[in-house]
Computed example of a mutant assay.
Amino acid sequence: MKYTTQRNWSSSRSKTRVLFDQTTALGSITVALFGYIVYHFIYPLIAKGLLW
């Protein structure tokens, strides 16, 4: 069996970049959704004194 190295290095790098971009986008959406929930549902309850 002959050992060979991968010749196309650019494809592995581009996949890593795409994966990083997708992870960043998903994390940003998660943080934005959490902020929306806190601002629109939890903060008014705290302001009215219903939670504390």
Rank of each mutant, 00 (worst) to 15 (best):
A25L: 08
G35D: 05
P44D: 02
T30R: 11
T24M: 10
A32M: 04
T23M: 08
R13I: 06
R7I: 08
A32V: 01
T30L: 11
V31R: 14
W9P: 09
Y36A: 05
Y43V: 02
A25C: 04
A47F: 09
S10Q: 12
T4P: 13
V38H: 06
K2A: 13
G27L: 02
T4A: 15
L33E: 04
W52S: 03
F41M: 03
S11R: 11
W9D: 09
F34H: 08
D21M: 07
I46K: 12
I42Y: 12
V38L: 13
L26P: 00
R13Y: 12
G35R: 02
R7L: 15
V38T: 05
S10D: 12
L45W: 11
K2C: 10
I37A: 14
K15W: 12
A47K: 11
L26M: 06
T16D: 15
R7W: 15
I42F: 14
Q6T: 06
F34V: 03
Q22M: 07
Q6A: 11
L33M: 09
L51E: 05
V38E: 05
N8C: 08
L19Q: 14
I46F: 15
R7Y: 15
H40T: 02
S10H: 11
Y39Q: 04
W52C: 01
K15P: 01
F20M: 07
L45T: 00
G27E: 01
F34S: 11
A25M: 07
L19T: 07
R17E: 13
F20H: 10
T30G: 03
I42G: 02
L51K: 05
H40S: 08
I37M: 13
L50E: 09
S28Q: 08
G49Y: 06
P44H: 04
Y39K: 05
L50K: 10
L19A: 13
V31W: 05
F34K: 05
R7D: 15
L26H: 09
V18T: 11
T24W: 15
S28M: 03
G35H: 01
K2Q: 14
R17Y: 14
A47E: 14
L50T: 00
S10C: 06
T5C: 13
K2Y: 15
K48T: 02
A32S: 07
V31D: 08
I46N: 06
N8V: 03
R13C: 06
S11H: 10
K2T: 06
G49C: 06
H40L: 04
Y36E: 02
T16N: 13
S11Y: 12
G27A: 02
L45V: 00
Q22T: 03
G35Q: 06
L51H: 09
L26W: 08
G49Q: 06
V31T: 08
G27I: 00
N8P: 07
A25T: 08
V18Q: 14
G49S: 07
R13T: 04
I46D: 08
T30P: 00
G27M: 02
A25Q: 12
L50C: 03
Y3W: 14
Y43K: 06
L33R: 05
W9N: 06
R17L: 13
Q22A: 04
A32K: 01
S11Q: 11
Y3R: 09
L45E: 09
K48F: 08
H40I: 00
A25N: 11
G35I: 00
T24P: 00
R13W: 14
L51T: 02
Y36V: 01
G49I: 01
L50I: 02
I37C: 12
Q22L: 07
I42P: 00
T5H: 15
S10R: 12
T5Y: 15
F20G: 03
L50P: 00
S12P: 02
